[in-house]
Amino acid sequence: MKARVYVTLKNGVLDPQGKAIHHALEGLGFAGVNDVRAGKLIELDLAENVADADIEAMCKKLLANTVIENFRIERAQ
């Protein structure tokens, strides 16, 4: 079983990397990009018996820093 964990910066937390990407896109001539936020995608290959609560605990303990980041768990089939 696989799960995807999306880690993103909380709203209001300045994202210097997102800003740099935004700037680069503008430099390449792409118009209409209002904002860019960069995050992480972490793919987990899990044993069948791993519960949702376990994945959430992994996120809180290590995968995301909840001072500055949010996480979203998506289970794949």
Binding site: V13, L14, P16, Q17, K19, A20, N65, V67, I68
Partner: peptide
């Protein structure tokens, strides 16, 4: 310690 240390604002 509280808080977090993020990428420098200048990157």
């Amino acid at each position: 310690l509280p808080g977090a240390l993020m990428r420098n604002s200048t990157i």
